[in-house]
Design a protein around this nucleic acid. Structure first.
Length: 512
DNA sequence: TTCCGACAGTGGGGTCGCAAT
DNA sequence: ATTGCGACCCCACTATCGGAA
């Protein structure tokens, strides 16, 4: 199959908003794909390259050769070209990679270049990614969507599932092939995710009086640990294998009284008193490959779920049943929890844990199974929310569906002497109506425009919600907001009454 | 007919390692 | 030695479609 066929489908996908129409386009292409091409075509339709890392990014695609007039690239050859780029390392590799990229893009038509660029940067923007692709695979293979979805969650990836389903000779064969994907110790599954709620009362109310499990939410990195005898593997939320970087987690899991297990939890750095260190320290620790550095700060694991123990698959069991098993096999390394149907009890736990430096809580349906890969309503997270009234210092042009709008705003606090200290940016929380309003409003306040960023007279006050403060080397105050989002513009408040940097500093905890 | 679950999109903060400068 | 890039940790939120209620 030619890459041009995939590019044409991608362009057609972007041109319609109907999901049914998108699915039909995907099905049509999948049916025309030869079995040996399915792994590549399925990945590309899902918006990804098969190579996890190529060393190519947005920046290295700024200057590209003129597109070819006629299509010639075969999808399998394109995959091979990216494989060669991925294998490069050491001195001269950047130049060599750049020349391979130029060769590839030079052989691509304009439509194909757009597809390749989207795959490299991860911003295909065709309105269809993995989830819609799974539906299409199901339809093309003549099997229920749920069977394909389930297999993909257990496989941790869509590619082998698409190959198995589409390589079958009949729907019954496809169903049998999909059934062969089961939870396997050593092979990570897509982690279950949580929705969010504004406060504990709302989260508990969502379960309508049923018993809930309220877990402390720890501010670390998600880890899925597989143990098979002495063999222990540690995976992140994106299923990357970080075993080599976290020997202390491996040791803890090896010491558990169990032969085989799959555990889900969070790993983080603690101080001498057992209080969580700032997320930045956990992040630095888990990212480094330097063993000496790693030895200085240990990560501690805290598990909140168990999917498998000694041949017993627990994913379908109710949460309370899984937790009973977890408490036996991982005693001493389990996340704190309360089980209740009373919102006041949940609220009290939330306040206590936040006071101890934890990030918040996750409220869970006590009867729910482990739904791999789902951001369902069975788990709901709640975190404390801080707010500040800040001043908009500048605004950046939007892209994609925000093209033509002024979107991403720069936020500043008063410095107490007539100036402002920038604390970060945000594009979150804006409705279409707000985007239209601010695009007009900020043109009135414009003092400069470099083509990307519009600098403003600092007059517009905006109420910002955020999760906390972190140390920053980027911003002049040495502080940045974490997860800032817009709540509302405040036309009732002049910039002279916005919050000051001293107020912001008083919110920062001594350790961060 | 209305409601709501699931998706995709739009980018934010930070960290590290590596190659080029 | 410093800088820029790519990769990957943590994410919040809105608009939309289409099936569920």
């Amino acid at each position: 199959m030619l890459l041009a066929d995939v590019a044409a489908t991608s362009t057609a996908l972007a041109a319609t908003r109907s999901r049914l129409a998108k699915r039909a386009l995907l099905v049509d292409l999948l049916r025309r794909t030869a079995p040996d091409e399915v792994p590549v075509v399925a990945r590309y339709l899902g918006g990804e390259l098969r190579q996890r890392r190529t060393g190519l990014g947005w920046r290295s695609l700024t200057t590209l050769p003129e597109p070819a007039a006629e299509p010639s690239l075969e999808v399998v050859a394109v995959d091979a070209a990216f494989e060669r780029m991925a294998e490069l390392s050491g001195p001269g590799s950047t130049t060599a990679r750049q020349s391979l990229a130029a060769e590839l893009f030079g052989a691509a038509t304009a439509d194909e270049q757009r597809l390749l660029r989207g795959l490299v940067t991860g911003e295909l923007r065709q309105g269809a990614l993995d989830a819609l692709l799974l539906d299409a695979v199901a339809e093309a293979a003549g099997v229920p969507a749920e069977a394909v979805r389930r297999a993909a969650m257990l496989a941790g990836s869509t590619e082998p599932v698409a190959a198995a389903a589409l390589g079958a000779s009949s729907p019954d064969d496809a169903l049998a092939a999909l059934g062969a994907f089961t939870l396997t110790v050593g092979r990570p599954v897509r982690p279950m995710l949580a929705a969010s709620a504004p406060d504990v009362a709302a989260a508990v109310a969502g379960f309508e009086g049923r018993t809930v499990v309220v877990d402390a939410k720890l501010d670390g990195i998600r880890v899925q640990v597989h143990r098979d005898g002495d063999d222990v593997r540690v995976h992140t939320r994106s299923l990357d294998d970080i075993t080599a970087r976290v020997p202390e987690l491996v040791e803890v899991v090896r010491a558990l009284p169990v032969r085989a297990a799959v555990l889900d939890g969070e790993a983080l750095a603690l101080d001498a008193s057992g209080r969580p260190r700032p997320f930045q320290e956990t992040s630095a620790r888990s990212a480094t490959r330097d063993a000496e550095l790693a030895a200085e700060v240990a990560l501690s694991p805290f598990f909140f779920d168990v999917l498998h123990v000694d041949g017993r698959d627990l994913m379908g069991a109710p949460l309370l049943e899984r937790l009973a098993v977890l408490d036996e096999v991982a005693a001493g390394h389990v996340v704190e929890r309360v089980v209740t149907d009373d919102a006041a009890v949940a609220q009290e736990a939330f306040a206590r844990w936040v006071g101890q430096g934890q990030e918040g809580v996750i409220v869970k349906d006590a009867a729910a199974p482990y739904e791999a890969g789902r951001r369902g309503s069975a788990w709901v997270k709640v975190k404390p929310r801080h707010t500040l009234d800040l001043v908009v210092l500048a605004v950046e042009r939007g892209s994609g569906r925000r093209a033509g709008m002024l979107s991403n705003i720069h936020l500043g606090a008063r410095d107490g002497s007539g100036g402002f200290v920038m604390l970060g940016k945000t594009f979150k929380g804006m409705t279409d109506e707000m985007l239209a309003w601010q695009t007009e409003r900020f043109r009135e306040l414009e003092v400069d425009d470099d083509g990307w960023t519009v600098t403003l007279r600092p007059e517009q006050v905006v109420e910002i919600a955020f999760d906390g403060l972190q140390r920053s080397s980027r911003y002049p105050g040495g502080l940045a907001l974490r997860f800032a989002r817009v709540l509302r513009y405040r036309d009732d408040k002049p910039a002279s009454e916005a919050d000051t940097i001293d107020t912001v500093r008083s919110l920062a905890t001594p350790t961060s």
